[in-house]
């Protein structure tokens, strides 16, 4: 897992699209949100830092974490990977972990932009709760990434439709506005998304708008989701490998 983590990290450093998703896009979103949300109270700058950071996190998870298996297929390394004694799921976990940890640079970049360049005072109301929330969010999002990566293989049109999934999660995740503004029927959709709970925990801890037990509650939900994702991914990866061996489609792109 650590080797997969390291290689993914090194590859991402030279990929312009990854750098765009991690650094440029979240900074542009942060800048716009900062301008648009002026006058939303004293804590709005830290709200923008967390929200725009979450957009970078989700974009990276979706495009890079999601492509973890298909990327190997494109480079012709999926067959040796599957043939090796290491579990494919563990390797993919390492790759997604690298993507998610790297995407935390989005939040750091937004923090530096808003704090140093625009001169806004930024303070975390409850720093310990924030950093624990960040840790739990990473665990939960990486687990979610395992499922996403399998969808790219199991659902032929998923990779082509992936562009359509970026902004819906920005919206349903309540990254930069409360989901209470959305129509009521969308609320259950938010509740089943782990990025939403990550945003709730991080915004709540950063701004101090949630009590300790409320934040602990979101950790519980994210960890429960993580367990479900990891268990489900075991089944999904078995299906992928069995299907690929039966149909001999392991290295066939688009199958």
């Amino acid at each position: 897992m650590l080797l997969a983590f390291e290689i993914e990290l090194r590859q991402n450093m030279t990929d312009g699209f990854v750098l765009f998703g991690i650094l440029i896009q979240p900074l542009i979103v942060a800048f716009m949100a900062l301008w648009m949300l002026k006058g939303k109270g004293p804590d709005y700058a830290i709200f923008v830092v967390v929200g725009s950071g979450m957009t970078g996190l989700w974009t990276t998870l979706l495009f890079n974490g999601g492509n973890s298996i298909t990327g190997e297929r494109w480079t012709g390394t999926l067959e040796p990977l599957v043939a090796s004694p290491a579990s494919l799921r563990v390797v993919i976990y390492g790759k997604v972990l690298a993507n998610v940890l790297q995407s935390l640079l989005s939040m750091i970049g937004s923090y530096l932009l808003i704090s140093l360049i625009f001169g806004y005072p930024l303070t975390l109301s409850r720093p310990w709760l924030f950093f624990i929330s960040l840790f739990v969010s990473v665990v939960s999002l990486v687990s979610f990434g395992l499922i996403l990566a399998s969808f790219f293989i199991l659902i032929p049109d998923f990779a082509r439709m992936v562009n359509t999934l970026e902004f819906p999660v920005y919206i349903l995740g309540g990254f930069l506005f409360p989901i209470a503004l959305l129509p009521g029927w969308t609320t259950p959709l938010s509740y089943i998304l782990t990025p939403y709970w990550a945003a709730v925990a991080l915004h709540g801890a950063a701004q101090g708008t949630l009590g300790t037990w409320q934040i602990v509650g979101t950790w519980g939900i994210m960890l429960a989701f993580s367990v479900v994702y990891v268990l489900a991914s075991g089944r999904l990866y078995r299906v992928i490998l069995r299907k690929a061996r039966t149909d001999a489609t392991l290295d066939i792109v688009g199958s």
């Binding site: 949100a33 648009m36 006058g39 049109d157 082509r160 439709m161 359509t164 902004f167 503004l181």
Partner: peptide, 28 residues
């Protein structure tokens, strides 16, 4: 692209981007 995929990228994806910014604007 299949028609559904084309429509998703031409109709649905831009809509979601619009909704995102409209709601940030509405919040502001």
């Amino acid at each position: 692209l299949r028609p559904a995929t084309y429509l998703a990228s031409k109709v649905f994806a831009p809509l979601t981007m619009m909704i995102f910014f409209v709601y940030i604007g509405a919040y502001a």
